[in-house]
Structure formats: structure tokens, C-alpha cells
Design a protein around this nucleic acid. Structure first.
Lengths: 195, 195
DNA sequence: TACGTTATGGACGATCCATTCCAGAACTGA
DNA sequence: TCAGTTCTGGAATGGATCGTCCATAACGTA
């Protein structure tokens, strides 16, 4: 039910979606819609909240607890998944989080707060995973995990942005690869010393 | 004149801007507006084109030709400038390129094409500069300049995205620093070999 | 089955907004 | 100064959209 509404908002944005569209999409009458949610804004908030929760859940699914030895793999899996998602979005609908934030955050405090909270959650997940990879020695422990997490979050959200702007899927995948490849590995014996 | 219109679209987006607003902002009557531009969509295209051109010009200003020895500095200057711009955007208006793309690219081929072309231009500028830095030995010449350029573009656009989503200015600056710091430097004698 | 309560959904009213229109201003050239 | 032409800008138009309302349907209870 909220899923149908989400499809609509995702497809045509907030301003571009008519309540009639949602009524038709969900099969509900407008009286029911207004009775259940109040107004268009409140309905959007519900949908937006759900989307943000899902975004964090996807991250949690890939970055959930596990052995430190596989932390880097989990990070890689997550970043690649996000690139694949964007690459697979042939309809160029982008991410409702980005779309909603771009359209409304400036004038709607609720949307702004929700998107900020989502970023904070993602940042925390990434930071934890980076810490694990550092403990295991896959990433340079001299690096600030907070900063690396912010960089990865920026890359993930950036992939979404440049994907919507029209960069081709192959390039998007390349960005994910490259971002992971340039992460500072432990300055170990036998890596760069052999020159 | 187009500048006033830009301010309006920037402030309130395409759908959120009324032609009355633009008339008031520019001081022109609606008859004149329609006589000069045709309709709201055409006016937006003009403004959007101008913005995209400006985005590329800013990049050209920082990444213009110069000695290879300073190529890395120019890259750094550009990435930091973009982070500062986003950090300084206290009104959280974001970038009209991102906002317009998010709102319209999906349904307006002209906007989609313009945003894609802008990405391509930025990519070319970055690639050239990375090539210069590689020639001078500041960046590892084994790395694919095309891929590094795509990564930097993603970071730059990503900074804009996470900035609008609410990440604080200090974190944004950190992302710019970190992105530049992790670029693969030439695996030189005396860098990581001293361990 | 019969009655009270709640939910439903399509029609309606009020509002908003892009676009058109036209009366008058500004300007050109003599 | 004056006639012809172009330009201006606010009022009018027409279509679309949000939110309300009420007749009806569905449901629970006895």
C-alpha cells in the first residue's frame, strides 16, 4: 500500500505527483487517503521515512557484524552493490532519498532532519566496518576511520548523483572499484618496498 | 536579468517557482517574459544551460593549463574549492545542476542531455590534469587517469549531495582532504620503503 | 435479519498557476 | 510634434489540483 505510493513519488517526485495518481495507484479513494494520512505532505513523510529506513537496512545487511577478516570484503560488497543499483536503474529514477532531499530539504525541516539522520547512520556503519578492517590489518590503522567513512559515503552518494546525471554504468562500476583500490592499505613489508 | 531568474529557480526549484515570482524578481511583466522566452520550460533551459556552463568554467578556471609540476596543486585547489562552496551554502540551496537533474532529468531529455554533457566536460578536464600530474611524477602513472578522473568527479558531486543532505562543513572539508590524500602517488624510493 | 457504526470513493468547491490578451507606454524617424 | 510600430505589464482565462463532503457499502453485533 505505502509501496504503491512510494512508486509514484519515486517516479514523479513530490510536486509532480497528484493525489489522484496515488489514489489510482493504490486503489484507494481520496477520502480514505486523507482520512488515513492527513495530507499529501504527511503521506510523503511516511514514504520518505520508509525509504530512508530501507537505505540504512540495505547497508546493515551488507555491513552487519562479522569477522574482522572479512570487513574489507563487506565494504567492497556494499560499495559495489550501490554502484550496481545505480547502474541497473535504467529508468534513471535515481534514489528517492536524493530526489526528495534535493526537492524539499531546503524548505521542509522534517525531510532535512530525516536525510541528515540517514547520513549519520550510514556514516556510523561505515566507520565501524573500517575500524574492523584496520584491526585486521587490511587498512592502514594510521588513517582516521571517521574520515575514510565520510569519503566512502561521499563516493556512494556521488555514484548515485553522477549516475543520474548520465554517466554510463561501466564508468560507475569503475568508480566503485577505484574507490576501494585507493583506500590506504597497511604500509606493509613487501608492498612498495620492492622497487 | 537571467541572473534574477536563476536565483528564483535555484531557491525554489522548477515546479516550485511561479512565473509571477520570476516576473516580480526580474521586474519584467509576464507579457515580456513570454515574448522573450516562449514558456517556463524554455526559460528554465536557458537558466540551466547558463549554470552548467558556469560550472564548467569554474573548473576550467582552476584546472586551466599550466606547468605539470603544479597539476596536483590545481587538482587540490579545485576539489577544495568545491567543498568550500558547498560548506559555505548555509541556505542549503545546493547546486542547481544537481537540483535540476534530480527534478527533471528523468522526464526532460534536454535537461538530461545537458547534465550528461556537463559531466563529460568535467571528466575531460580532470583527466587531463591527472595525466599532467602523472607525467610530473606526482601521481602513480600505473593508474588509469580515466578512472581516477571519474572517482574525483564522483567525490566532487558527492560532496554536494551529502552537503545538501546535512553533513557538516568540517566533514565536507575532511572529505576533500582525504580524497586527495588517498590518490595513488608514485611508488617511489623512500616513501613506504622506510618501514 | 436488522440496526448502528465505520470505512469508502467519486463528485464538488475553492484555489492556484501557466499562459494569453490588450490597452497603453515608449520609441523610431521625419 | 506626430503617426506608426514595437514593447510592456497587469488583468482575465482556462485548466488542473488539493482537500472536503456525503451518499453508499461493508462490517460487527444482537
Amino acid at each position: 500500500m505505502l509501496e504503491r505510493a512510494r512508486e509514484q513519488f519515486w517516479e514523479t517526485g513530490f510536486a509532480g505527483t497528484r493525489m489522484d495518481d496515488i489514489a489510482r495507484a493504490t486503489g484507494l479513494g481520496k477520502g480514505s487517503l486523507y482520512g488515513a494520512f492527513g495530507d499529501k505532505g504527511a503521506l510523503f513523510h511516511r514514504v520518505f521515512d520508509g525509504w530512508c529506513a530501507a537505505v540504512v537496512e540495505v547497508a546493515e545487511g551488507r555491513l552487519a557484524d562479522g569477522p574482522d577478516a572479512e570487513a574489507l570484503d563487506r565494504l567492497s560488497s556494499y560499495v559495489h552493490l550501490m554502484a550496481e543499483n545505480t547502474a541497473a536503474d535504467t529508468a534513471r529514477r535515481g534514489c528517492l532519498l536524493a530526489k526528495g532531499t534535493a526537492e524539499l530539504a531546503q524548505h521542509d525541516p522534517a525531510v532535512a532532519a530525516r536525510s541528515a539522520a540517514t547520513m549519520t547512520s550510514l556514516l556510523a556503519l561505515l566507520r565501524k566496518e573500517i575500524g574492523a578492517a584496520q584491526r585486521h590489518g587490511d587498512l592502514d590503522s594510521a588513517a582516521d576511520p571517521e574520515r575514510l567513512a565520510a569519503l566512502l559515503l561521499t563516493v556512494v552518494r556521488g555514484i548515485e548523483a553522477v549516475g543520474k546525471a548520465g554517466l554510463d554504468p561501466e564508468t560507475l562500476r569503475g568508480v566503485a572499484d577505484t574507490a576501494l583500490a585507493v583506500l590506504p592499505t597497511t604500509p606493509s613489508r613487501g608492498d612498495g618496498a620492492t622497487t
